[in-house]
Design a protein around this nucleic acid. Sequence first.
DNA 1: CCAAAAGTGTTGCACCTACACCCATGT
DNA 2: ACATGGGTGTAGGTGCAACACTTTTGG
Lengths: 225, 225
Amino acid sequence: MSEGIRVAVSTVIFSLRSRPDAPDALMLPLVRRTRGPFLNHWAVPGGWLREDEGLDDAAARTLDETTGLSASYLEQLYAFGEVDRSPTRVVSIAYWALLRQDLVDAQLSTRPAPENVAWFDVDDLPTLAFDHDRIIAYALWRLRNKVAYSRIAAGLLPDEFTLSELREVYEAVLGRRLDPSNFRRLIEGSEALVPTESFRTGKHRPARLFRYNAEVALAETGPPT
Amino acid sequence: MSEGIRVAVSTVIFSLRSRPDAPDALMLPLVRRTRGPFLNHWAVPGGWLREDEGLDDAAARTLDETTGLSASYLEQLYAFGEVDRSPTRVVSIAYWALLRQDLVDAQLSTRPAPENVAWFDVDDLPTLAFDHDRIIAYALWRLRNKVAYSRIAAGLLPDEFTLSELREVYEAVLGRRLDPSNFRRLIEGSEALVPTESFRTGKHRPARLFRYNAEVALAETGPPT
DNA sequence: CCAAAAGTGTTGCACCTACACCCATGT
DNA sequence: ACATGGGTGTAGGTGCAACACTTTTGG
């Protein structure tokens, strides 16, 4: 029987940080543990699954509890359930999520992150509690894979954005430069974006703004639905 | 808290059935429920997670309990945890597995399947308990995807096999015919198989036997490991 | 006018598909 | 000999990477 087994949900939350004089960096929020095993270590946000909520709901709830926001993309990652991954028996259902950069920035400027929450660059993480390093590594691997063959990346950007901005997201996620012209064709051919009539005016030639096409977003990964 | 939540593991087990005068069919074993909700309905093999075993172990154990065999491939599929998927609160960690056709045949001829276990063609399934139809649909989708971009299919065959036999597995899984010559190049280029010096002699020109290359099998899906 | 980003066009390569063709064996 | 599956060769198509090129803005 499984009476002594508890179910937790953890969510690896990705967003972008603007850096002066450097390309945007992929970052994620961690929570400093205030109790129990691994006291004061950093951990992936999460919590116990409640009896009256589904797994997806629990992921969305804990995401909201740590960031005050709801995700533009949320997907189950993996169930971690080795016997020794925690001193007590815990099965953790891991999720990963994308938060829009503008919403995170807005949230942080009005209401700064709680004392025990901090954002870290994915390339510069602290020592983590439990097996959370594995969870993050896997989430990062899935994100990079998914970016390569779907149009997920727009989940990190505001409603409207230029192709350059989107390309920079891809570059931040994948960790390498992409050819602007080929990137344009790739995206335009995919029908994941719809062009608007607005332009972003800045230092140089104005760039057309695009909008994410919600229709296409769904049918990308197959079941479960 | 999650005291009233129980954790189960279910495994969608795939193998092949030889049919007279027809290509092999993809099939899976189901268990007739002897109790509780959905009494007498067919269900995916599984059981409660024990306190002293990991998720993978539980999947392997229940697989052995229903078939008497161990899998040539076993992978976690998804955690199903909607509140209303069962009358009591159950989170099911679903797995999917491949069994070698020759081992299943041998097992069935020496010790026939238990009373409450039966094998079904994936295209001709009975009404299922709980949300097990969704679980099977997802497992099938994953299998087909994985077959398309990895060399997993050899997990359904004996140690040594001809390229035709392997191609017929692909055809059974994908549900369409493949060009023999292109299939040969695809496989030979992938280095997933190593040629042996043996030949299968039969009605026609002898065909070289191949063996699965265990080296390559691992690094295909990335984390977790 | 110049720098720099927006956006277009072109070419070459890698890979996949379809299909023609030869090879080896059992009957 | 011939039917059948084993196995090789090749031409066309598609898609992507690389990169030359034109356009449009701010300074």
